[in-house]
């Protein structure tokens, strides 16, 4: 039988899915064991049991000075920045994408401008943002917006342009105005694409968030990671990295679920 026709059964597929996770964990455990047996004081690869203990401590015990559980405060601060940035990006991107995609006048006016803007490396703007908006929340949110908005605008306007011409003509023959075509024909059809683009933007958004937090912050997941780096606290770093991964995965998964639930007609590629 050809390899391309060899399909795993359900239990075997689940096993295969879990296998790489188990292998990575195993490799880490072995490596950690080798290093710790040579030097029990080794900080580079703490034992899995120690990482687990740190995890439990981080999520349950309060800070000695303030009594706050910093882990959850960090999470909340980061998610707030991320959510705000992405929400602003998505809504501005949606409106701009519709305008550029539907109106040739706006396309001539803005499309090339956005294309040029999107070439600016956002992190290079970070100092400017810190100078202009200060070191508070605003500059971090603005960095996420600056980093994700040009891509969203370009992607969404392209999706609107790709809508079949037939549909727009059909809507016109049914008497639809430009406004009605925008809200009743174009908007619902690019909503699933918006969710898809936001899913793609979440990676860069996390990157910008952690970068901004690493440089200037007093709370947040990225801030904590870069803070404990000074003490080589690998167990804390691991906990935070795993937590960020889980958060990113959950956000991605829920966006996909939302897209499937609200836009069942857009089956392909979701």
């Amino acid at each position: 039988m050809r390899l391309i026709n060899l399909k795993p059964g359900r239990p075997f597929a689940v096993f295969l899915m879990l296998l790489p996770f188990a292998l990575v964990f195993l490799a880490y455990a072995i490596g950690s064991d080798i290093r710790l047996s040579a030097n029990p004081q080794d900080k580079l690869l703490p034992a899995p049991s120690k990482v687990w203990e740190t995890m439990v401590r981080l999520v349950s015990e309060g800070d000695r000075r303030t009594g706050r559980i910093l882990f959850w405060h960090d999470t909340w601060a980061s998610l707030k920045r991320l959510g705000l940035g992405i929400a602003i990006s998505a809504s501005v991107g949606l409106v701009a994408g519709l305008l550029i995609g539907l109106l040739p006048l706006v396309r001539s006016f803005l499309a090339q401008f956005v294309a040029v803007l999107s070439m600016i490396p956002p992190l290079a703007l970070l100092p400017i943002l810190f100078i202009v908006f200060g070191l508070g929340e605003l500059s971090k949110v603005v960095l996420i917006v600056v980093g994700t908005l040009p891509f969203l605008i370009r992607d969404l306007s392209q999706r609107v342009i790709e809508l079949p011409d037939e549909l727009l003509v059909k809507a016109q023959t049914l008497g639809a105005s430009s406004w009605v075509i925008a809200i009743r024909v174009a908007l619902p059809q690019i909503m699933p694409r918006l969710i898809q683009s936001v899913r793609l933007s979440l990676g860069p958004a996390w990157l910008f968030l952690i970068a901004a937090e690493a440089i200037a912050s007093d709370l947040g997941l990225g801030y904590r990671i870069f803070l404990v780096r000074r003490y080589l606290a690998m167990d804390v770093i691991f906990t935070y990295v795993i937590w960020i991964t889980i958060l990113a995965f959950l956000i991605d998964w829920s966006l996909r679920a939302a897209s499937r639930k609200f836009y069942p007609w857009a089956q392909e590629g979701l």
Binding site: E166, V169, K170, A171, Q172, T173, G175
Partner: peptide, 18 residues
């Protein structure tokens, strides 16, 4: 521009998929 007095059916993409 196309208007209410003209109705049209294309070979494809004639109905709103959403």
């Amino acid at each position: 521009e196309p208007g209410l007095d003209r109705g049209v059916v294309f070979q494809r993409y004639s109905v709103f998929p959403h």
